[in-house]
C-alpha cells in the first residue's frame, strides 16, 4: 500500500513551540490495521509529532491527511471527531473526576464504540475502583484507564504516547497483550516508545525520529539487521 492510500499520512510536518522550531518536516504514514512505532531519543520530537497530529501544537504546517481528509487546519476537537483518539504521555487522568467519570468523559465519536461493559470487562480493576478519584490509582491502573476511556469512543485510530513509561515489567507485559488484542480487534495504532524491546514485539514497522525528522524506517522483518542500526539511533 502506498502513502496515498494510507489511513493516516503525514507529509513535511513542521511545528513550533512559540518561536522554537521543533519539527522539521516529519513524513510518515500508517496503513489500516497496522501498529507503527516512533522510536528515538528523548527530545527527538516523537511526542511533539503526536501532539501536532492531534492539533495540540498552536503553530504547525505541512499536511496531515486522515482517511483522505486534510486535517492540518482543523482544531483538535474536529481532528478527534474524524476518529482519532489520543492517549498522552502523562496519561491525562483528571483528579477532580472519579474513575467512572474519567472513563465516560470522552464523547463517543465513532460508529462502533466498544460498550462500557466490554471495556470494563477488559479492565476489571476500573470497575472495582470506579468511585476513587482518577489520580488515586496506581501508575499502571491510570495507564489502563487512559487506554480504556478512548476505546469506548469508537475511534479506530489510536495515538499512544509512551504507554509503558514508569511501569513495572509485569504491567508492561500485560499492556503488550492488550495492545496486541487491540490490533486483532482492528484498531490502527501509532505508538511512541522508548522501550525498543516492547515496541519490536508489537509493531509492524518502526520510524526513527531524530532532531524533529523521520530519519529511517525499519520493517519488523528487517529487525535482526535493523537492531544494530537501532542501537546507534537510540544510543543503547
Amino acid at each position: 500500500m502506498t502513502a496515498d492510500t494510507a489511513m493516516l499520512s503525514v507529509r513535511n510536518l513542521h511545528a513550533w513551540y512559540g518561536e522554537s522550531h521543533v519539527l522539521h518536516g516529519v513524513t510518515l504514514h500508517v496503513n489500516r490495521g497496522e501498529v507503527v512505532t516512533l522510536l528515538g531519543r528523548n527530545g527527538a520530537g516523537k511526542s511533539t509529532t503526536m501532539r501536532a497530529i492531534m492539533g495540540l501544537m498552536k503553530k504547525r504546517s505541512g499536511s496531515i491527511t486522515y482517511e483522505g481528509r486534510e486535517a492540518i487546519t482543523l482544531p483538535s476537537h474536529q481532528i478527534a471527531r474524524m476518529g482519532i483518539a489520543y492517549c498522552p504521555e502523562h496519561r491525562g487522568i483528571f483528579s477532580r473526576l472519579d474513575v467512572q467519570e474519567n472513563l465516560e468523559l470522552p464523547p463517543v465519536i465513532g460508529a462502533y464504540p466498544l460498550t462500557l461493559d466490554r471495556v470494563q470487562a477488559m479492565f476489571p480493576r476500573l470497575l472495582e475502583r470506579r468511585h476513587s478519584p482518577g489520580t488515586k490509582l496506581s501508575g499502571g491502573e491510570q495507564q489502563m484507564l487512559a487506554i480504556a476511556r478512548i476505546l469506548r469512543t469508537g475511534a479506530r485510530f489510536l495515538l499512544l504516547d509512551e504507554p509503558t513509561e514508569g511501569l513495572a515489567p509485569i504491567i508492561v507485559k500485560h499492556l503488550g497483550e492488550i495492545i496486541g488484542s487491540l490490533q486483532s480487534m482492528g484498531f490502527t495504532i501509532l505508538l511512541v516508545e522508548q522501550n525498543f524491546r516492547f515496541a519490536s514485539a508489537l509493531a509492524d514497522r518502526h520510524y526513527v525520529v531524530e532532531h524533529g525528522r523521520v530519519v529511517d524506517e525499519i520493517a519488523s522483518g528487517e529487525l535482526a539487521a535493523g537492531s544494530a542500526r537501532m542501537r546507534v539511533y537510540l544510543g543503547v
Binding site: M54, G55, L56, P75, S76, H77, I79, A80, R81, A85, Y86, P88, G92, F94, S95, R96, L97, E101, E104, L105, P106, P107, I109, I150, T153
Partner: peptide, 20 residues
C-alpha cells in the same frame, strides 16, 4: 464533568472531541 476536566487540562478535553 467536562467543565471540571477542562479546568484541569482544556487541551486534553478538546483532544477528545469536545468543542472547548
Amino acid at each position: 464533568a467536562y467543565l471540571r476536566a477542562a479546568s484541569e487540562d482544556a487541551d486534553m478535553v478538546q483532544a477528545f472531541g469536545v468543542n472547548i
